[in-house]
């Protein structure tokens, strides 16, 4: 297969014993692209994350990270290209301070100290975590631990960033920090694949939606189109997020799904109405 994308699944199947998790899944994510991976609980989304990171390997088909076939490659080798945050990010933290934890990746890859320091500082900056750098990860709230795990993934400066529910349990400010950090990272050319149930976050931050349904690829299209279609979302276990639902209910022109766009459109239409 010719590999154009930073990440590609080609006919991938995977089972846990006799429980099939993924069947014949194919998609590509280009460098700089921001993709949401959606679907019900148990649809196979986290399995995709584990396959990208090399924690699991496909039973059939191939997972490509750039021009690397992940078959036969261990997670620590793939870490040169892949950064990830697991769903239960707590389980990813282990060092005595947050700074040590964030710097673990670049240190393990063997970068010299000044480079480790630069990457760690930039990652802490990106998530506004400097104030907590000297704290023990377990003295932080679950929300900050989540941001800490993401900082650790960013410090690898990966070409592929895969995140499993990065906003679960975060307040609006926390979600905003995650959104800014991952958008910036994608703008620098990384491919971004985000497993999320937070469709409001997806609408604000991501461009394209891939939906899994019982282990199969059910849909792959621009998010703004998908999120405004309640009839299509329903059989996939999804519900339009509030902004998309409002756009449809008020029949706003262009059906915006991002808050800023919807507020601008709302103001414009309301202004037009009051003049007429």
């Amino acid at each position: 297969m010719a590999v154009n994308g930073a990440l590609a699944f080609d006919g991938v199947a995977f089972s846990y014993g006799n429980v099939a998790a993924l069947r014949d899944v194919s998609f590509e994510v280009a460098a700089g692209e921001r993709v949401a991976l959606l679907g019900r609980n148990g649809a196979g989304k986290s399995s995709v994350v584990r396959l990208v990171t090399g924690v699991l390997h496909p039973d059939e088909g191939t997972v490509w990270v750039g021009d690397w076939d992940t078959a036969g490659r261990a997670p620590e080798e793939l870490a040169w290209r892949v950064g990830s945050v697991f769903q239960h990010a707590d389980q990813q933290l282990f060092a005595r301070t947050l700074r040590e934890d964030v710097s673990f990746g670049p240190r393990a890859l063997g970068f010299p100290a000044p480079e480790v320091r630069r990457r760690t500082d930039e990652a802490l900056d990106a998530l506004d975590l400097h104030a907590h750098a000297a704290q023990h990860p377990y003295d932080l709230s679950p929300a900050l631990r989540k941001l800490a795990a993401l900082a650790g993934a960013l410090a690898l400066e990966p070409t592929v960033l895969v995140l499993d529910e990065p906003t679960a349990g975060l307040d609006r400010a926390g979600r905003g920090r995650v959104a800014d950090a991952v958008r910036e990272h994608a703008d620098r050319g990384a491919a971004l694949l985000v497993v999320t149930h937070d469709l409001a976050f997806a609408a604000e931050t991501l461009q394209r939606g891939i939906v899994l349904d019982r282990g199969r690829l059910a849909c792959d299209e621009p998010l703004d189109r998908l999120l405004t279609s309640a009839e299509r979302l329903k059989p996939l276990g999804l519900v339009p997020p509030p902004v998309a639902a409002l756009s449809v209910a008020l029949d706003l022109p262009g059906r915006p799904v991002r808050e800023r766009d919807a507020a601008d459109t709302l103001a414009r239409v309301a202004g037009g109405r009051s003049r007429s």
Partner: peptide, 8 residues
């Protein structure tokens, strides 16, 4: 936090 929209 961990649930799909339907589950939530």
């Amino acid at each position: 936090a961990e649930l799909d929209p339907e589950g939530a």
